[in-house]
Structures are given as C-alpha cells and as structure tokens.
Design a protein around this nucleic acid. Structure first.
Ligand code: ZN
Ligand code: ZN
Ligand code: ZN
Ligand code: ZN
Lengths: 133, 133
DNA sequence: CTACACCCTGAAGCAACTACAGGGTCAAGC
DNA sequence: GCTTGACCCTGTAGTTGCTTCAGGGTGTAG
C-alpha cells in the first residue's frame, strides 16, 4: 500500500501521514526499491485508530497514550477511561465558555440600532468611553 | 506610562503588548531616553479595545477591521455588524460541533464496563475490528 | 517518448501568543 | 557608592496540528 492509498483509505491527507511518522505517532513503514513508503494492514489499523481518536477531539498526546494503553490488552482500562473523562470535562468547559461568549456577543449585537459608527453599540461596548478622537 | 503599567491596566502580558506592536496592531509608542516604551492614553484606549474584542473571541484580523471601522465614526455601522454576525455564526458552529462531539464521547464513555483494555468499549470504538495483535 | 499523476525530503507558514537568552536601567536600602 | 531586585530591551524559538511550498525523482498510459 502506497501512502496515497493509505491516506485515502483513512480520509487523511498524505502530508499528515508523513507528519504522523515524523512525530513518532505512526511507525516508519518499509520502503520500496524506489524509496516509496510501503504500508501494511497494521499501519492502516493504527492510522484509523489515530484518526478516530482525533475525530473525537483527543489531542495527539492523548492519542499517543491511548495507543500505548490499547496495546496492553490485559491491563484494566482505568487509565483509558481517565483520559476520556478528562477530555469530556475539557469539552464541557469549552462549551460553557463558548455559550457565555455567545450570549454576550448576541446581547451586544441585539443592542445595535444600525446608525452610524459613532452610535454603534458594538463599538461602544468595545471602546472605553470616549475612545474616538 | 511604561509597558508594564499599560499591560497590567489591560490585564495583558507584556510580551503580548510587544507582539501587538510587532504585528502592527498597536502603534509604536515614543521612547524614553533609555529606550523604554512610553505610552499615552490613546494607546491605553486602543489596547483596551483590542483586549475586549479578543475577549469576545474576535480574531486579530477581525480586531484590525473593527479598529479601522471604529475610527470612521461617520460611516454606517453595517460593516461592524457584519463582522460581529459572522463571528456569532462561527461561535454557533463551534458550539454545535462540540456538542456533537460531547454526546458521542459521552456515549462511548458510558458504554465502558470497566474491565480490561481488551474489553474496553472506548478502545473498541477507536480500533477497527481486530486491531490488537 | 512525453505527459501526468504520484512519490520523496526539508523547510517554512498558519494563529496568537509564550518563553527564553542575554543583555541594559533604575530606585531603594545598607 | 554599591549591590539587589524589579523592571525594560531585542531577537529567536517553541507551542498545536497540521498545510504548503520548493525542488526534485518515479512509474505508467497513450
Ligand atoms: Zn448596526
Ligand atoms: Zn452597530
Ligand atoms: Zn472503564
Ligand atoms: Zn474502558
């Protein structure tokens, strides 16, 4: 399997695959006589895992840990759950932040009466009073 | 006003102030004889504006446009509203994405029965069938 | 045999900062 | 008058997760 095939099989782009190899997330594959990367089923599985984890929003560091943990099938999955829980908490925090932002911005936007910039409530909200010369 | 005072007055860190100057967002101030930056009220106002806009999640590019628009007080505020509306839409999209992520992740997390990694539903979700050796 | 799609490496660019390294300046306290 | 410490300066590199580019080589179909 050449890099382009691997990439399209996982909806990844080719540069990203090479990037994962560079940062040590994906093992360097064998090479053909013309120095092309030659991937096998194990690489495909690994990259699929990575992409799914990324789709779930895990950072590359978290993915790295998940990969390591997933290789040790006899262990308890506590550590895996821990990583996922932390991630969930983080997502909740982000959602909360964005909602607060959203409501503030929407309030500001709603208060604009569409006149000149001098009267614009949006600008007024941003500028400390009397900013304009 | 020295950079440290300006920075603490706007809850910005000093490096960030210098960074804003470097990218042309904040005008270079006068210098003292010892080459220290000397800021005035206009700089304080400008930086306050920038920070508030950033707090509302506007990108630096958007902030740049807002600053330009805010200087032209006679104009209609349509462009300002436009920038803010686009930003609101973007925030909504992000919230939507995160919520989808959250529900997926939470479903996966809930399905784990806390045994070994081999049985972990989280790993199972990530791995295409039969990934582990 | 010549297009053209694909592959290679290595470096740089993106957002928006943050963190050094390696200096200079200035006021206070002894 | 001299040291200590807080502050200031410049310039560069690091962060995250890629993408893009420059400047090549390879392989195959027409
Ligand atoms: Zn308006
Ligand atoms: Zn307005
Ligand atoms: Zn569990
Ligand atoms: Zn589990």
């Amino acid at each position: 399997m050449k890099i382009g095939e691997l990439a399209s099989a996982t909806a990844t782009n080719v540069e990203t695959v090479r990037y994962y190899e560079k940062i040590g997330l994906l093992a360097p594959p064998a090479r053909t006589s013309s120095n092309y990367r030659a991937y096998g089923a194990d690489h495909l599985a690994r990259l699929s895992f990575i992409r799914r984890a990324r789709d779930l929003g895990f950072t590359l560091d978290a993915v790295r840990e998940l990969l390591t943990l997933s290789d040790d099938t006899g262990q308890s999955c506590e550590a895996v759950d821990g990583i996922a829980s932390i991630h969930l908490t983080e997502i909740d925090r982000k959602i909360g932040d964005l909602k607060a932002l959203r409501s503030e911005l929407s309030r500001v936007l709603g208060s604009c009466s569409h006149g000149t910039v001098a009267d614009c409530k949006i600008i007024e909200t941003l500028a400390p009073r009397g900013e304009a010369v």
